[in-house]
Amino acid sequence: MAKRSNLFVLGGLLVALLLAGVVSNFASAHPDGLDSSLREGCVFDADDTIVGGSCPAQQAREHELADSPLADYGVRGVDNEYLSTGLSGVVGVLLTFTVGGGLFWLLRRRSDGGVARSAASGDDADPTPGGADVSATADGRR
């Protein structure tokens, strides 16, 4: 069971890598809902610089980490735009999975020291109180 869950997570991770690494290059480049609402009232030139009018977006200031090597979803030093976006997406997915997954793993509930370990390797003991429901669901599935 634990092994099958790990397979599922691995499969899901591959899908996420594909989306962030490849599909991201086909994303719309238009400003998103928030950004476009804040730009209402201003006039922009071809370089996306405000040339007239007044709008909330005028007050926007530089990001603290605008110099980050991955700022704006690109990899600094990689000139090919597709490669740059795709690589930043791959790094982002792996980083988010590592940070998030690591944090959640550290926070996970260990009912008592020994059980947690054996459940992780063998999955023969189910320490969760609601475990009956969960495994009934899993068993009924084909």
């Binding site: 790990n6 997570v9 899908v15 997406g89 997915v93 792996l94 998030g100 997954g101 690591g102 793993w105």
Partner: peptide
């Protein structure tokens, strides 16, 4: 638990993507 923790990591990574 042991099962939700990696799943939650995946959900975060998927939302990022």
């Amino acid at each position: 638990d042991e099962r939700l923790a990696p799943m939650a990591g995946l959900v975060a990574a998927f939302i990022f993507a």
